[in-house]
Simulated assay, not measured.
Amino acid sequence: MRVAVALQTLTIFLQAVSAGVLLSSSHGELLHGVGARVMYGASMLYVLAAVLAWRPGGGSPRPIAYASGFLVLASAQVVLGIAHVPSVHVPLGVLMFGLSVLVLARQNTGAADGRVLSGGSGPERS
């Protein structure tokens, strides 16, 4: 799960970089288009990882909802990008990056699955 979310976060960040290139170069459109496909694939990988972590691993189904939400947002991003609606496309991309960073941070601290890493004032980690 962590790898899938990290990959998704990285690809969303690279989309922001390629958007800057898009504004300043004729090669930016190709780079941004390829990046969109990679980001969408990373979002699908996140859904797959969430399902695999839930079913065989006995984890919480909540990450499946998060991953599915990201896939819906990624789908909206693709549609808005193709339709050339930057007034929604750009803020949605910023929102997606922020949410992806938040999920990644929660996973790295254990908060996503109910574990707490505060100095002893929470459930014990096993």
Rank of each mutant, 00 (worst) to 15 (best):
residue 17 V to Y: 04
residue 91 P to W: 05
residue 97 F to Y: 15
residue 93 G to D: 06
residue 66 Y to H: 11
residue 92 L to H: 15
residue 37 R to K: 14
residue 98 G to K: 13
residue 93 G to R: 04
residue 56 P to M: 03
residue 90 V to K: 09
residue 110 G to I: 12
residue 49 A to G: 01
residue 61 P to R: 08
residue 109 T to W: 04
residue 55 R to D: 02
residue 117 L to A: 12
residue 102 L to T: 10
residue 6 A to P: 15
residue 17 V to E: 03
residue 87 S to Y: 01
residue 54 W to D: 05
residue 6 A to I: 04
residue 67 A to S: 06
residue 103 V to E: 02
residue 48 L to I: 10
residue 13 F to A: 04
residue 63 P to N: 06
residue 88 V to T: 15
residue 81 G to W: 00
residue 77 Q to V: 03
residue 32 H to N: 02
residue 10 L to W: 13
residue 121 S to W: 06
residue 51 V to T: 03
residue 107 Q to L: 11
residue 51 V to R: 07
residue 101 V to T: 08
residue 81 G to K: 04
residue 39 M to W: 01
residue 77 Q to G: 05
residue 54 W to V: 07
residue 44 M to D: 06
residue 9 T to E: 03
residue 5 V to G: 00
residue 115 R to E: 15
residue 2 R to L: 14
residue 116 V to I: 11
residue 4 A to S: 11
residue 68 S to I: 07
residue 13 F to S: 01
residue 106 R to G: 05
residue 27 H to Y: 12
residue 72 V to M: 11
residue 36 A to C: 04
residue 112 A to W: 04
residue 4 A to G: 02
residue 110 G to N: 10
residue 83 A to Y: 08
residue 97 F to K: 05
residue 17 V to A: 12
residue 101 V to C: 07
residue 126 S to K: 15
residue 102 L to D: 04
residue 106 R to E: 09
residue 65 A to N: 09
residue 93 G to W: 01
residue 106 R to S: 09
residue 43 S to C: 10
residue 39 M to A: 14
residue 119 G to P: 15
residue 103 V to K: 02
residue 21 V to P: 00
residue 91 P to D: 10
residue 108 N to V: 07
residue 80 L to V: 14
residue 74 A to G: 09
residue 70 F to P: 01
residue 40 Y to L: 13
residue 108 N to H: 11
residue 57 G to M: 14
residue 55 R to G: 00
residue 56 P to Q: 03
residue 66 Y to C: 05
residue 17 V to Q: 05
residue 84 H to S: 12
residue 11 T to H: 00
residue 31 L to S: 06
residue 50 A to T: 01
residue 20 G to N: 09
residue 53 A to T: 07
residue 2 R to K: 13
residue 96 M to H: 03
residue 36 A to P: 00
residue 15 Q to E: 10
residue 58 G to A: 03
residue 74 A to K: 00
residue 8 Q to F: 01
residue 41 G to S: 09
residue 115 R to W: 13
residue 118 S to N: 12
residue 88 V to S: 15
residue 50 A to I: 02
residue 47 V to C: 08
residue 88 V to P: 03
residue 124 E to N: 13
residue 23 L to K: 13
residue 6 A to M: 08
residue 18 S to C: 08
residue 92 L to V: 10
residue 75 S to N: 09
residue 102 L to R: 12
residue 123 P to M: 15
residue 75 S to G: 14
residue 90 V to T: 15
residue 62 R to G: 03
residue 119 G to A: 15
residue 75 S to C: 08
residue 74 A to R: 01
residue 66 Y to Q: 07
residue 124 E to V: 15
residue 67 A to L: 08
residue 82 I to A: 14
residue 108 N to K: 12
residue 6 A to Y: 04
residue 117 L to I: 11
residue 73 L to M: 11
residue 4 A to R: 02
residue 91 P to T: 08
residue 16 A to N: 11
